[in-house]
Simulated scan of single mutants.
Amino acid sequence: MSLKISGLDNLSKKLNKIKTSVEKVQGSHLLPINELFNDKFMCKYSKFKSFGEFADKSSFDFSDIESINDAELDAFIRKNTSFSSWEEMKSTAAKDWTLKQLEF
């Protein structure tokens, strides 16, 4: 008795596509802030429609992120997003971006 298994070609193609996507996102990436915190992300997790609106309402200078007081930024984020800190917000955005690149 033998069984014929079909569909493995499709599975193989899908696995190769995933492999290619994983290779694409490995390592470090320098992303524009509006790509990392895209409009969909900002609408989902904050009171704002875009990162530009978030930045404007915050009064922080995101072009010089190192000059921003961490405690003040975290307080603004706690008040206006579903995150407790800038680090948590960045981490979630990076995960969302990665999943999008992997097409999940």
Rank of each mutant, 00 (worst) to 15 (best):
E72H: 13
K4C: 07
S82P: 12
F76V: 09
R78C: 15
F48C: 06
F83D: 02
K4I: 14
K17A: 13
E53M: 06
T92D: 07
Y45P: 02
K49P: 06
N80P: 03
I68R: 00
G7W: 01
S85M: 06
D56Q: 14
I77L: 09
T98C: 08
K57G: 10
S84V: 07
S85Q: 05
F54G: 00
F54A: 01
S59C: 07
L3E: 10
F54I: 02
G27I: 06
L8G: 04
K57D: 13
H29D: 09
H29Q: 12
Q26Y: 08
F104P: 10
K47R: 14
E103V: 03
M42Q: 02
L15K: 12
E23V: 12
L15P: 02
L15Q: 08
K24N: 15
E88P: 02
S28H: 13
L31T: 09
S63L: 04
P32N: 14
E88D: 11
S85V: 09
S58H: 03
F51T: 00
L8F: 08
T98A: 07
M1R: 11
W97D: 01
V25N: 02
M42D: 01
W86I: 08
T92F: 04
K90Q: 12
L102M: 05
F83M: 04
V25M: 02
S50I: 02
K47P: 08
F76D: 03
S91W: 04
S63C: 05
L3G: 08
L11V: 15
Q101D: 04
E66L: 03
K47F: 06
L102W: 01
K4F: 03
I5R: 05
